[in-house]
Every structure is written in structure tokens, then in C-alpha cells.
Design a binder for these strands. Structure first.
Lengths: 313, 313
DNA sequence: ACCTTCAGTTAAGTTATACTTAATCGAACA
DNA sequence: TGTTCGATTAAGTATAACTTAACTGAAGGT
């Protein structure tokens, strides 16, 4: 059986026709006349030796052979489009699109952005603050920052600093709650965005690691960490803050972490991009800038003591 | 950014060149002159606005853009080839290639084959007795018979009769082992091909379901069920036989299942083919024939009593 | 029943693409 | 130093792809 491929333009015509289930619409998509498309399909059917469409009154439907071919054709042309877009994006060293969760965007990226823009005025930055699964090719994404455990198969993945949590509050609150025990009097804010962690990194886990009776949070709940931290900044209460999200506020005195003891989450933010793309100029620049920015606050992180997790029975 | 695809023949030329890492070999593969191929690559690079290959002394290597495009191009053209082959195979109603495991091939298909050939002399049958993962398009497989739990995503999947196991032996042995307890004196053959089942369907599980002390098999082990059953037929001992593999020997008196109690495995043989292919003439004929053949021995299977699995603590 | 519209087809002619041949280039290898 | 190998270029040709324009046949409206 001769397995060599038929003319590719005919296959593309078939793909469009099968997707639209209409020759006319397919012709429109490909910017050709219906006549040309009809001819292409006919030629493809001649190559195959069997019809691919059944011509009905004023519609077409796929034959068995057509059904066998259509899904693969669709997927194949989508893949070609994706690859082509990726290749096109490769030569663009001017723009950089980054996607990150809302918390990281608000608490890490946003406060430092002007710094990056200053260092690399030639790079046009775009942001997409969403947590939904990313498709680098489809959504024109260059870099993704994601929090969790990994691994990240098929991607270039650079784990950033390890994330821990520790109670953070306004400086003026610190004297009111001089000890961890005194937090029983405080409004303890709940950040549900870390609820997926296993082992957990919530108030109960932190107090257990501190060796005190469990702190039971009674304050408001937030589904996004940045909202929880905004509540802290507004003086509402005390929250468990993740390293990346609070370190700048700690460095600049807007928040304090008075107990000096932090609980590891095991999870990290990772810098993700398509494999091979990590060498593109603007991506490498962004990556190095992030690492330098993290380094700037490393001394603060190192001043904290990492708590041991008690062994669970 | 104009995302429309470049000329497809150029993309195919690029794919071949990227796979061979040589324009000359790519040209050979596509049955064109090196000049034509060189021109195609050049035109593709013009469309992209950047080189895809770096021309070295007497070799070529991919640029970043080329690296971004090559894997997708390769996968896409493989997919098109697969789809095209599937469409070609659709119109072939004469031949039928079936793959099944060695046990099913030896103990179910082989003894019944002449029957199918008799009913459908026009269909040319081919067999491939292997358990390795099948690729319908790549290996020209039409139908696969597989044992296990499913599901079978993306395939037409028809579960056949439920598989149970029960001790089988030569008729003349049955009087020597009149009760399940008496099997302690017998050579109990081990069939490792069902070791993957969960819950298990081995001697221990069967005796437990029978409510007797565990039977500990001491006989030979076989990795394939047909070899275990051949050992039974040779008078070596007693084995736990799967329904599909022993029912014909039971029906024709070569083996007996004297205790009349069978243990369900929860797993089944399934009739698998690419979605949509189940309506092809020869595939439907084969499917219906299998169902009829199974029906012929259904009365025997129904004469057995299904054991309850004891609830595990 | 009539005309109109719509979706696809067919035929003829044109344009653009893909290909070949043949000559050229440059580096590696003997 | 000449030879060979792999890629390139130029010129010319074949053919694939497309357009225009006329046609078919069924649906739908009045």
C-alpha cells in the first residue's frame, strides 16, 4: 500500500472542509474560491481511491474514510500552526509575555516591574494574571510563573527560592502580640490559596511546628493570597505569608515577621518556558533579573529559622 | 503577527531536512533534487524572516527558530501519515489484521479460525500474537483483543464476556480430586499472566472464596496462560483456567471443571478498534462472529456458580 | 408552479509554484 | 593540490493551484 502523502494543499482543504462541514466556508477560510476547494477535495479523493465526503442536498457529511482522516488532519494542522508560531516568536527579542497567578503578580512582579523596565527599556512586557493551565503556543505566552511542586514535563523549569510561611503583621501590631501564644488574641486571617499543599502550611501546621497548642484561625478567609496580605496591610489582622509574597514588605518595613520562625511548604515558584526558549535574549534577561531580585532579599530570608515539621503518628 | 501557515511543501521539506539533518538526504526522501529542497528551505526562511538552519562547513544545524519548529513539524507530518493510512485502510474490505495476546491466540482464536475462514472466505486474515502496546495506524492493525480492565480511551471498545477462573484438569484426574480440599494433594500450576489482577484471581483467592484453607500452589509456574493450560492438557496437574481460554476444551470434554464454582476476575477481554472502524465490513463480520462464538459456549459458562469474594478486612 | 437562493460542480484559461538541469561555491579530505 | 561532498544559484519548464464563468439540483418562499 503506497503510504506516501497526498498533496498537502489538498489535505489542508480537506481539514478546513471537515472542520466547517461546508466547502463554501472552508474556501472562505483559505481565501480561495469554492471551485478551487471542490477541485482539491476531488483530487484528494482520487488519490485515496474513495470518497471522503458524501454530497447531500445542500450539505456534506464525512464518509468512513473521511472520519478516519479528519481528526488526525485537524490535530496535525493545529500542531503545524503552533510550531510555526513558536518559530515566529523565537525571532522576536523585543516583547515578553509573562503569566503568573494573581498573588505573585500583585505582590512580587508589580512592585519590582519598574526596575526591570528600567534595566531593559528595549523589552516590551505584557502580563497575564491567571492560574489557568497555560498553552505557550496558543496564548503567545513566553514565560509562566507557577506555584506548586512540579515536575514540569516537557518544559524548561527553574525552581526559585523555597517557599515557607510565617505570621506577618503591621509593625505596630507586633508589640501587641509579643509571643506566638499571644496570637490567640489576634485576628488570624486564612489564606485558602495554599490549601492544596500537602503537608499543609496553615495555622495549625505552623503552631504545631512551633510546639504550641493549635492556633485556630477565626478571621476572614481569602481565596487569593494577595487579598489576605492586603487585609494584613489594612490592619485587619495577622496572616501566614509566603516568602515570595511578603519579603519585599518585610524588607521595607511595611510588615514584620516577629517570631523569626518559618515553616517550609516544600513547594516552590518555578520559572517555566518552552524547552529551548530559555536562551532567548529577553527570556534570559527576565530570568536573570528575577534571580537577582530574589538574591537581594536573601539575607532577610536567611535571618529566619526554619522549623522542623513534627513527625506525624 | 501573521499566523497563517507558510507553504506546506516547504514545511514538509523542512521536516525532512530537520529529521535527517541533511538537505541531500531530505531531498532523496522526498524524491526531489537537492536544489529544489534548498529552494524550499530558503522560501520558508523568507516567510519566517529568520534562518531555520545554520549552514556549516559540510553540515547544517538548526537555529533556535528551527528547534522550535522541528518537533511540531515532525509530529504533525507523522500524524498526517497515520490519518492518511487509516483512511486508506478504510476502503479495504478484504483483509483484516488482528492482534491478540499469545494465550488468546492459541486457546481461543486458533481453534476457531477455520470456522471464520469458512464463513468469510473473501476476508484475508492476518494475525499478530503480541501483547506490546499497539499502534493501529503504524502497524496496520485493524482489531486488537486485550485482557484487562479498560477503559480504552479514544478507541471503539466492546467488552466481551466476563472472565472468571476455575480449576481445570483432565477428565481422568477429576475422580482423584473429588473435592476442592483434595487439591492439596494435586500439582497446582501457577499462571503468572493474571498476576497483575487486583483483586487477585490466584489459587489463594479461589480457595478463600470457596471457604477452605488457602491452597498453596507448589507446581510449575508459567508466564503465559496457554503454556499453563498445555501443561494441564499434558497431565501435569491442575490450573486455574480463564473462561475464554478453557471453555472450548470444557465444551468438548478435553478438560473438566469439576467443582462448578468460578471466581470473577473483574477483568474482561475487549474487542478494540479505532473509533469509526467498527462499521467496516470485515471488522463488523469478525466482531459478530466472535460474539456468536462466545454465545455458543454461554450455556456452559452459565452452568457454573459465581463465587462471592469475601469482604477483606 | 414559479422564481430565487444556496452549495457544490465542471470546464477553460491563467498564474504561481515546484521542480529539473547545469553550473558554481567552499570547505574537508586524501 | 586536486577531488569530493553538500549546499547554492540561475534559467528554464512542467504542473499544480487558482480564478472566472457557466451549470446543476435541491430548498424555500411567495
Amino acid at each position: 500500500m503506497a503510504t506516501s502523502l497526498p498533496p498537502l494543499t489538498a489535505l489542508r482543504a480537506f481539514d478546513a472542509a471537515a472542520r466547517h462541514m461546508s466547502f463554501a466556508k472552508a474556501a472562505e477560510e483559505l481565501n480561495v474560491t469554492p471551485a478551487a476547494l471542490s477541485f482539491q477535495i476531488k483530487s484528494l479523493e482520487e488519490h485515496l481511491g474513495a470518497p471522503l465526503f458524501r454530497r447531500l442536498n445542500r450539505a456534506v457529511e464525512l464518509t468512513d474514510a473521511g472520519h478516519a482522516l479528519a481528526p488526525d488532519a485537524k490535530a496535525a494542522f493545529e500542531m503545524l500552526t503552533n510550531g510555526w508560531r513558536a518559530a515566529q516568536r523565537m525571532q522576536d527579542h523585543q516583547s515578553l509575555t509573562v503569566t503568573a497567578g494573581p498573588a505573585f503578580t500583585a505582590k512580587w512582579l508589580a512592585p519590582r516591574l519598574f526596575q526591570f523596565a528600567h534595566e531593559h527599556p528595549e523589552i516590551e512586557l505584557r502580563f497575564s494574571a491567571t492560574l489557568r493551565a497555560m498553552d505557550f503556543a496558543r496564548d503567545d505566552i513566553d514565560v509562566a510563573i507557577r506555584f506548586g511542586y512540579g515536575p514540569d514535563p516537557g518544559l524548561y523549569s527553574l525552581p526559585l527560592a523555597e517557599e515557607w510561611v510565617t505570621p506577618v503583621m503591621l509593625p505596630e501590631m507586633a508589640e501587641r502580640y509579643p509571643t506566638p501564644e499571644s496570637l490567640r488574641e489576634a485576628v488570624l486571617i486564612i489564606d485558602d490559596s495554599v490549601a492544596f499543599l500537602d503537608p499543609p502550611a496553615d495555622w495549625e501546621a505552623w503552631s504545631e511546628a512551633m510546639g504550641i497548642a493549635p492556633l485556630v484561625p477565626t478571621g476572614p478567609r481569602f481565596s487569593q493570597a494577595d487579598h489576605a496580605l492586603d487585609a494584613v496591610l489594612a490592619g485587619t489582622g495577622v496572616a501566614l505569608g509566603r516568602r515570595a509574597l511578603v519579603i519585599k514588605d518585610l524588607a521595607e518595613g511595611r510588615l514584620v515577621a516577629p517570631y523569626g520562625k518559618v515553616l517550609s511548604t516544600g513547594a516552590r515558584f518555578r520559572f517555566l518556558c518552552p524547552e529551548g526558549a530559555e536562551t532567548r535574549l529577553q527570556i534570559e534577561a527576565f530570568k536573570n533579573w528575577m534571580l537577582r531580585e530574589i538574591d537581594k532579599t536573601a539575607h532577610i530570608a536567611e535571618s529566619f529559622e526554619m522549623l522542623e515539621r513534627p513527625i506525624k503518628k
